[in-house]
Measured scan of single mutants.
Amino acid sequence: MTSCHIAEEHIQKVAIFGGTHGNELTGVFLVKHWLENGAEIQRTGLEVKPFITNPRAVKKCTRYIDCDLNRIFDLENLGKKMSEDLPYEVRRAQEINHLFGPKDSEDSYDIIFDLHNTTSNMGCTLILEDSRNNFLIQMFHYIKTSLAPLPCYVYLIEHPSLKYATTRSIAKYPVGIEVGPQPQGVLRADILDQMRKMIKHALDFIHHFNEGKEFPPCAIEVYKIIEKVDYPRDENGEIAAIIHPNLQDQDWKPLHPGDPMFLTLDGKTIPLGGDCTVYPVFVNEAAYYEKKEAFAKTTKLTLNAKSIRCCLH
């Protein structure tokens, strides 16, 4: 018999989150649709729960009410004593943790798909938090293969000092899905179709896995975050240069030392320094102006996964 890495157990509980950011409308629209008619997301033997994560922000069509829901799922915020004085999103995070967690427990949901849009030209993107997770690498390989020839990129946010504390991190297997470009507060049919297909293929993978299909060893190309880059700023902290036209919409493309990065209003080009080629992502993302992030630098690498098969009882 072929030796293989056996994944822990079959997958039982899956959640699909929309509206973690209330103005990213593809996930909101799909989740609302699936709450009314969820036939397309159901798979035999699998509990799939669509869920609106930040209903107040969705109602106002804004990213958040008090603070970013997708950055506060750490033990400090989840452990705060519940009171009306807490920011709305912290209270909501505790409610979500109660419903789908608790985080880092045996009772937490197996998989959470968190649906997002970006204003950046990132196409279909899967966000991975753990480079050693054979199950998710296999799932992402399946999704990428199923979507081809449509490109699907994998963004690895594993980093020693950049801690995200994402909404989906309460699950055993957290999956971020990011599709763009799409303006905030807008629905685009092409973007919706791409996100819908990503979810379909992900659920198909889980179904095949649960039925005992063995997935042979595989490898995927990923883009691992190195650092986030702020806009150049003046002495008052105001933005002093904008994304250069040569960099705009060039997510995932190589940016070499000396290539144009920013452009000042008086026409001066600010190039990339250093001696390493990087791959920019979230270029000129609207939501990241407040976070002082013009783009993120990534490096390209390959992740390998062992063969996996479900432990059938």
Rank of each mutant, 00 (worst) to 15 (best):
E47P: 06
Y223E: 00
Q194N: 08
M122R: 03
D68W: 03
S169F: 06
M139V: 00
I137F: 01
K253E: 12
T277G: 04
E293P: 15
L69V: 10
I226P: 01
K13N: 13
A39M: 09
I157M: 15
S131Y: 07
E76F: 12
I41A: 04
Y142P: 00
G22M: 09
S3M: 10
N246T: 15
D104C: 10
D275G: 12
P50C: 10
P149K: 04
N117P: 01
K144D: 00
F100K: 05
K292M: 08
Q250C: 07
E129S: 10
K268L: 10
E106P: 11
L35T: 15
K172I: 04
V281F: 03
I226E: 10
D190G: 06
A57N: 05
P181H: 02
V283L: 13
T264I: 03
V281E: 00
A165H: 11
I199M: 14
I308D: 02
I206R: 00
I96W: 06
R43S: 04
L35P: 00
I72M: 14
V58S: 08
L35Q: 15
G267M: 08
A286Y: 08
Q184W: 10
H116L: 11
K81Q: 14
V48E: 01
I199E: 01
Q250P: 01
E235M: 15
P254H: 04
G180F: 02
T20V: 03
S307K: 09
A202W: 03
K80C: 09
P280F: 02
V278M: 08
C311P: 14
I16S: 02
D249Y: 01
C152D: 00
N54P: 12
A286L: 05
I72W: 06
C124N: 10
E214L: 09
G79N: 12
A241R: 01
Y88R: 06
R233K: 12
K224Q: 14
K172W: 03
N23K: 05
I191P: 00
T20K: 02
E214R: 07
C311I: 07
L247H: 02
P149I: 01
Y153F: 15
Q12F: 07
L35G: 14
A39K: 11
P102C: 13
K224S: 09
D266R: 09
E178H: 13
F113P: 02
H10W: 10
E221G: 04
K292T: 07
G212E: 04
D85M: 14
L69Y: 07
K60F: 10
A294H: 01
W34F: 07
G45A: 10
A294I: 03
Q138I: 03
N37F: 15
I220P: 01
H98M: 14
R168C: 10
I72P: 14
Y288A: 15
I191C: 06
H116A: 10
P151R: 06
N77F: 09
R132N: 13
K300M: 13
R233D: 04
V186S: 07
K80S: 15
E285S: 14
Q250H: 08
R196A: 05
H256I: 13
P151G: 05
E211C: 07
S161E: 12
L255A: 05
V281H: 02
Y153P: 09
C311F: 08
L69R: 08
D110R: 03
K200M: 08
A57L: 06
K213R: 10
K81P: 06
K144A: 13
A148L: 10
T53P: 06
I11G: 03
L301Y: 08
T269F: 06
Q182D: 01
A15K: 03
Q138T: 01
F73W: 15
L156H: 06
I127W: 09
P181W: 01
K297W: 05
E214F: 13
A241M: 05
H201R: 04
S146Y: 11
A93Q: 08
P271A: 12
L115M: 13
D104R: 09
S146L: 13
L312E: 14
A39I: 11
P87W: 08
Y289Q: 15
L203C: 02
L30H: 01
D68Q: 05
N70A: 10
H5P: 11
N97C: 14
K144W: 04
Y164S: 10
N134S: 13
K172D: 04
G22K: 10
T20R: 02
L303N: 02
P260S: 09
S161C: 14
A240K: 14
K306Q: 08
N54C: 04
E293Q: 09
E290N: 14
H10T: 08
T119D: 04
A240R: 12
C61Y: 09
G18F: 04
P181Q: 03
V175M: 02
G18T: 01
E285M: 02
D74W: 09
L86Y: 11
N77T: 12
N77M: 11
Q248W: 02
Q12W: 07
T298P: 00
D74N: 14
S120P: 01
F209C: 04
Y109F: 07
G273A: 11
P174F: 11
T145S: 15
E293R: 09
P174R: 13
I206E: 00
C4Y: 09
I170A: 06
M261R: 01
H98L: 13
P254N: 03
Q138N: 00
F73G: 10
K224V: 04
W252Q: 02
T53W: 05
F73V: 12
P87D: 15
A202N: 00
R233A: 09
K163S: 15
E227W: 02
D66Y: 12
N284I: 01
R168H: 10
I137D: 01
L150T: 13
D107S: 13
T302G: 03
Y231S: 01
N246D: 10
Y279C: 05
D275M: 10
L35F: 06
Y279M: 03
I239T: 07
P149V: 03
G123V: 02
V31A: 11
S131R: 12
A57M: 11
I16V: 07
K292N: 14
P149C: 04
F205L: 01
L115A: 02
K228G: 12
T53M: 07
A219C: 07
S146G: 12
G22T: 11
N121H: 11
E221D: 09
D66Q: 14
H5W: 10
Y64N: 10
H21E: 05
N117T: 12
F17H: 05
T145G: 06
N284P: 02
E221K: 04
P174S: 11
I16D: 02
V28F: 08
H141N: 14
T277A: 15
N304P: 13
Q194H: 12
P245F: 02
I11N: 04
I220Y: 04
I52G: 00
E214S: 12
N77S: 12
T2E: 08
E211K: 11
P245E: 05
S108Q: 10
P87H: 14
L25T: 08
V281W: 01
K60A: 15
T298N: 01
L78F: 12
L78D: 07
Q42C: 09
L99A: 14
N121W: 03
F29E: 13
A165C: 08
P55K: 13
R196L: 02
I52D: 01
A15I: 02
V14G: 02
L265N: 06
A148S: 14
I137Q: 03
K144E: 05
N210S: 05
V14I: 13
H256K: 11
L86E: 14
A294C: 04
I170Y: 10
G258D: 10
L162H: 12
H21T: 05
N97G: 11
H141E: 04
V28N: 06
A165M: 12
T269I: 09
K300H: 05
S105I: 14
L147C: 15
P102H: 13
W34S: 01
L263P: 00
P232M: 04
T44C: 12
K59C: 08
E95Q: 15
A148M: 13
H10E: 11
K268S: 10
P102Q: 13
E47I: 11
L35S: 10
H98A: 12
K81G: 09
M82A: 13
D190Y: 02
K224G: 05
L303C: 06
I199W: 00
E290H: 11
F262Q: 01
L99Q: 09
I143C: 01
A240C: 08
R168E: 08
A93L: 12
G38M: 15
Y223S: 00
L75P: 11
E106L: 13
S161Y: 12
G45D: 12
E235K: 12
G258W: 13
A39D: 10
C124K: 02
K197N: 15
L301D: 06
L30S: 00
P160N: 09
K297I: 14
G274V: 03
L69K: 06
S161Q: 12
E211G: 15
E211I: 09
R168T: 12
S3Q: 12
T62L: 09
E84W: 15
E36G: 07
H141Y: 14
I199L: 14
E235A: 05
A7G: 10
P271T: 14
P232D: 02
